[in-house]
Design a protein around this nucleic acid. Structure first.
Length: 193
DNA sequence: GTACAGATTGAG
DNA sequence: TCAATCTGTACT
């Protein structure tokens, strides 16, 4: 069952947690690329110093962050890696969830059970490469797009959700300590640290 | 027009 | 743990 708008209008931290275990599907031509979400981070602008929308900052780049829940906010970091986020909450509320790691579901043949399989989607940049997502998908609505959407999966039990601080945002001071990163316990596909 | 950040990655 | 890497962004 496709995730609907109401799902993305829930509090962002709840969305970040419930996204674990759901499937993301990208229809690239005739081929469907599917991954199960196993790691997320929440970004709660405008108060969150680590958010691109800190203090209601608005730039052409982050405009998708202000869209109503369910829109794709994707952007480039380090000049080479794409990062996939999904906006949450009401229009004008700059909150989103960053997808940090997936379990690759499609293409099991191409990635047999070797170490490589565990390292093609375990990071924000790699997972975008796996899903073939980039700037072209900026601002798409995953509730209505025929090309990309999210599908309900097995619910991850609260005891299997590990909570920790977010990664790579040390510049954000005390905000960097917020326990807003969530991942599936013992899952081999999470981004290591 | 251009300096520069950066929510990373992979090698050591 | 650390440094190589590069282009869109956000300024002048």
């Amino acid at each position: 069952m496709r995730l609907r708008r109401a799902f993305f209008l829930q509090p962002t931290l709840k969305v970040a947690k419930e996204l674990l275990g759901t499937y993301i599907i990208h229809k690239a031509g005739e081929r469907k690329i599917i991954g199960k979400i196993v790691e997320t981070e929440a970004y709660l602008g405008p108060d969150d110093r680590a958010s691109h929308a800190f203090g209601y900052r608005r730039t052409p780049r982050n405009r998708a962050e202000y869209m109503i829940g369910g829109h794709i906010y994707i952007y480039l970091v380090y000049g080479m890696y794409w990062q996939l986020n999904i906006s949450t909450g009401k229009e004008g509320k700059p909150e989103c969830v960053l997808i940090r790691a997936l379990e690759p579901i499609s293409n099991p043949k191409r990635y047999p059970l070797n170490t490589k399989r565990f390292s093609i989607t375990n990071g924000p940049g790699k997972l975008c490469n796996y899903l073939k997502l980039d700037k072209r998908h900026y601002g798409l609505d995953v509730c209505t797009s025929p090309e990309i959407w999210l599908k309900e999966g097995e619910k991850v039990k609260p005891k299997d959700i590990v909570v920790s601080r977010r990664i790579g945002i040390d510049y954000a001071g005390s905000w960097a300590l917020k326990p807003w990163r969530f991942y599936v316990r013992d899952n081999p596909f999470i981004s290591k640290y």
